[in-house]
Every structure is written in C-alpha cells, then in structure tokens.
Design a binder for these strands. Structure first.
Lengths: 336, 336
DNA sequence: TCACGAACCTACAACGTTGCATGCATCTCG
DNA sequence: CGAGATGCATGCAACGTTGTAGGTTCGTGA
C-alpha cells in the first residue's frame, strides 16, 4: 500500500540504492539524477518506512521520557520543554508515566520492553532513592533528572538546589524577614531535594546570623497543594511566630497561601511567601508568588543534548550537569 | 549485542520460529518446549526487537497524541488520561506539540513522517477550523478531539458542549443569579466551543425566562488566564451590572476571579463564578471554582478505544462519540 | 593516447521478526 | 485398521531499508 524505495526507483528509472542516497543527502549524485528522483518521490508521496530504517540502522529517532505524572504542573512544563528541545535535535518523545512515586513501577519501567522503540531515556524518578542508584545501570543511554539520586552510573542533569534555596532564603531575609517557616521538610532524609534545600536555607540563616529554630520546620511527606495547606494549618495551630514561609516547591507554597488567607493573614504584609520551581501558575495566583526558577528550559535542553551525545558515544564517562537558577521576586514577598 | 530469537533458539535447541511462537503465545506448544524456551529467554534476557516486529507486522504499538501545548493544564491532564488509557490497551504514546493554535503547523503535523512510527493519531486541533475538515482525510487512523471541526472524515470524540453549558448556566440561575456575564465569546463564530457553549447559555436563559443581554458578553480571542483577567477588567470598566460570571473555560474564570478580588468584590456573595473544564486546579483556588467536568477520563478512554478499533478495522464508517459531563458545585457559586 | 583517480551508480546482503506452507507424529472415529 | 483430523515443530520468504563492495563513466595529467 504505502510506496517504497522500490516504487520510486522504478518510476525514476534508477536503482533503489540511488533513491536511498538521495533521501539521505549523499553528496555524489548528479543534479539531473537527484532531480529525477525527487520528482518521483513527490509524485508518489513517498515517505521512508521508519521501522525498516530503525531495523537496519539500530536507531529509532525516539527518546523516552519517564516521569511521575503529567497532571502535576511541574512535570507537564518539563515535558513541554523536553519535547521542544527534542524537536530541535530531530527526535520525538515517547512519554511514560510512572505514577506518583511508585518505586516498583519505576524500576520495572527501566527494563520495560517498550523502551526497545527508543534510543535512550530521560528519567525523572520520584520513588526510587539513593539506595537504588545501582539499578540505574541499564543497557541503553540514560539521563537522570532530579535530586533523588546522586553519583549514579548515568549522566545527571540537576539544578543547584542548595545555592538556589540559599538565594531564596536570602531574598526573604533581605525583605526584612527573620522568622522563616519551611514547608516540605523530609525528616531524616540525607539526599534529595528536601535536604539539599534545607541546607541552603540553613546556610543563608547562618550568614545572616539568624538562629535556626526547629519549630519553624513543617514536615510533610508529599509535596502537593493539600500537603502545603495541611502543613500551614498545623503551623498556625502550633502558635509559633513567623513572618515568612518558604515552600520547598510552588505547590506547597500555593496551598499554604490559601490557608493563610483563609486565616485572615495578609500576604506579604503579615507573612511573606516564597515558592520554588518557577511554575507558570505562580504568575497568576493572588498575590503572585515569588519563586525560584530552576531553569527548566535549560534542564530540558541539556538533558536532550546530553542524551543525544550519549547515543552517539556510549563510552564517555557519565557527567553531572548543573543548570542556572534565578530568584523571581513577585508580590508575595514585596516590601513596603 | 542484543540477543535475538536466533540466540534463544540455539540455547533452547529449537527453531527460531518456535521461540517466536512462544513469545507470541501461540497455543500449540508442548509445555516442556515452552518451558525450555522460557528458560532460555530468561537466561539471555531476551527482549524482542520492536523495529523488526513492526517492519514485519506493520504495527508499532505506538499511537501519536498531537495537542497544542502541555504547559496548558487542560492538555496536560488530557495527555495524562490518554497515556493511562493507552496503557490499558497495550499502547504507548508519542506526544507532539503543535503550539498555541498554529494552523500551518497543525496541518504540517498531519503529514509528518514522524507519524510513520505510529499506528494512528489522536489529534486535538486549536488552529484548524471547520473549513479545514477536508484536510483530516489522512492515510492512517485518526481520532479527532474537541469542538473545532464537526462532520469531518474521521472518528470524533467530544463532549456535549451545549448541554453542559446549559447545565452550568442553569446552575447559576438556580443559585438565584439573573445577570450572568459570559467570558470567552468568539464573535461571528459558527462552529466551535465558544458558539456551542454560548448556545447552551442562551437556551438556559430562555427556559428561565431571562432576556439575553449583549452587554454581558465579553469577547476574547484566546482563552488564557490573562485574557480572562482582561475581559473582566473591561466588563467592570463598562459599568454593566452583573451578579455572576460564566467563563467558557476554567482558565478564563480563574483570571477573572483574580480581577474581581482585586476590585474588592466578594465571590460568591457579590459575584458567583463558574468555569468549564474541570481542571484539577479549580479544587485549590480561593474560593474553589465551580466548573463543568467534561469527563476527561471518558474522553481519553473513548479516544484510545476508538483509535485501537480503527487500527483493527479501517473500513468502518466514522462515528461521533459524546461523553458525559457533570456540573461540579464549589464555593464560587455557593448560596446562602 | 593511456593510466588513474574521482564521481556516480548499482547489486547484494544483511537487520530480526512473523506469515505461510509444510512435515511429521499422534489421536479419533467409523 | 485405515483415513482423516489435530497437535506440534520447522524452514523459507519477505517486510523496507542501508552498508559495503564493486562497477562504470568521465576528466585529467603524463
């Protein structure tokens, strides 16, 4: 049914291989021949069969993107950026969802036969952790995203969590705040976004000569909006005084804002609020939310570029890439 | 490098075809043989080469999903649902973004060679319109989503726009509102979400014996949050009286809510607000936003099922599928 | 004029899989 | 007990492409 090189070859009166050469921009082809072939291609509406090409060449031109769930804005925006970046590298993206932190499913996904269609994978884990680093030894190019696993066997693209959290905290301190509550602390965690960001927070306090107060820490397992709301409620109930809140992600901060407003507190006059992630949504909340932009486009572009390089050259040693962040000041931390 | 049927066959001491039969669950295989083969497969970690399989069988097990942009929550949530549904049908999803309503890009996408990797496409246009219906005649299975094109040559899954908008309007009327402003009107549009929803609005008014007032219509081209905000500003500036706002999507409604609150109006006491789309986010706004849930999971499941059927049987005539909606009442339209 | 290399084109053999036809052994039933 | 059916396994060919090697033509310099 679909036309093949063979059909084009017959129509153009050349060999199959010559048509293939034209399609692949081989240089030594007489202009007359090329034109003849191109005309036949146009006439028949020929499109190369990518399955056959893959079988022959071992490349599919497809990369996988495995992330928890697209319904979380952070991952949706990440996927958007990755797909755009992939397009610039002439790659298409097959998106897999691993669910909200299901470790077993993530591990299963890493050896899924579905990946056969793929030249490599960009993987953003949410359930696996540092102890699972060895499981990232897979027989295909892999680029790891996020802060759950460091020092694994694959390339890794991540943001400067500690520095960024430090800058965010400093932004609050510069706005005159001294009692800064923190949402999203994972108690006992040694590696991961939470502990890295907490470290940044502490460094900023220390530099400013502010004492760390354990009572300002709001532990939460998950980082959804409901968790931010709940953490804020218990913080308010505890009676501890604070003049600012630093949410370890935007979603936590937005959930907290809602509770603060319901409680009649004014943002930023009574409590300044700072998020983390640079979600699009933070531009539209009331008040608009100050946040840290982790450089999502840069993360996506880097991840795709590194993966594409890795597909070309599997032997190079794995590297870690850090992206640039920026503090975005908005209404929720405005002064005066 | 990767193991093939051939390797497994040698290890198991059977023919290649027998291994293939085991892999494909062919029924007439002696248990002993099957076991021998399975053991060899496990030992070698054999995974079928999907490119070769596709080449031979003409199926890739991949479906395409083309939508404007994942960074819009509506599409992110749709993609999430489609990927989940596809998984149930043993299909994986290749996501393509066509950008925010770029007609030329959408048309180009429909004949992109990238689709060669795909058994069919689920397509949600945003730039193409009714006049482009003929362009949907493509040589592969296609399922159309949305309300921009009706009566095209392909299967079509869409929601009951008019009925849903009518129900939403009735919900506001039942809450005692009579001056219901509308955000998102596309002037002069004959087919599309906007005109269908407007029609539902008018039907509800008529049934309730309320006169239609052109001054309550806020025309906007795009349906982003900023447009909702802008529309609301001009509505307020116009001085026209209203006690409710119906946003033709949630994003418009959320943008409008922000402006209303900045203007010191209370929701729902002064103005009730109703959205449309059932975005996750509407659960978390302040106040929570009443909306119409278009049955996203049902849309996704139907689209995937119809596409899968269409892949099996290309000759059946195209059909239109309508999903069930529900009105979700929340704080923004609460009474009393 | 001839030798030689470059430019251009082609034939052939894979890549790994599955559909089809076929072969052999075993079973079923009149 | 023979004929046909059934269960199980196999070999071959083909899906459409590209890498390799080789063939032909042409231009150039000796």
């Amino acid at each position: 049914m679909a036309t093949t090189l063979h059909d084009v070859a017959i129509l153009a009166g050349v060999s199959i291989k010559t048509v293939s050469n034209v399609v692949n921009d081989y240089e030594h082809i007489r202009p007359a021949t090329r034109e003849k072939v191109l005309k036949a291609i146009a006439q028949l509406g020929y499109q190369p069969n990518l399955s056959a090409r893959s079988l022959r060449s071992g490349r599919t031109g497809v990369i996988g993107l495995a992330l928890p769930e697209l319904s979380l804005s952070y991952f949706a925006e990440l996927a958007d950026a990755v797909i755009r970046a992939a397009e610039r590298h002439h790659l298409v993206v097959l998106v897999e969802q691993t669910g909200g932190g299901d470790r077993a499913r993530e591990i299963e996904m890493l050896s899924s036969p579905r990946l056969q269609l793929t030249d490599g994978l960009i993987f953003s884990p949410r359930g696996m952790d540092q102890n699972d680093a060895a499981l990232l030894t897979v027989p295909y190019p892999l680029v790891l995203l996020g802060e759950r696993i460091f020092g694994g066997p694959s390339d890794h693209v991540t943001m400067r969590n500690t520095e960024a959290a430090k800058a965010a905290t400093k932004h609050l301190i510069d706005a005159g705040r001294r009692r800064i509550a923190v949402l999203g602390v994972h108690e006992g965690e040694l590696v991961g976004s939470s502990s890295l960001r907490l470290q940044g927070y502490r460094e900023a306090l220390e530099e400013a000569g502010i004492d760390f107060d354990q009572r300002l820490m709001a532990p939460v397992d998950r980082w959804y909006r409901a968790d931010g709301a709940e953490a804020m409620r218990s913080l308010l109930a505890s009676g501890v005084q604070f003049d600012a809140v630093f949410g370890f992600n935007d979603t936590l901060a937005l959930g907290a804002m809602r509770v603060l407003q319901e409680a009649g507190l004014r943002i930023p006059q009574d409590v300044a609020v700072m998020g983390f992630d640079g979600l699009d949504e933070t531009k539209y909340s009331l008040p608009t939310l100050s946040t840290v932009d982790p450089g999502r486009d840069e993360i996506a572009e880097t991840a795709v570029r590194v993966l594409a390089d890795r597909i070309e050259n599997r032997d190079a040693p794995p590297e870690q890439y850090l992206t640039n962040f920026s503090v975005v000041a908005r209404e929720s931390t405005a002064t005066g």
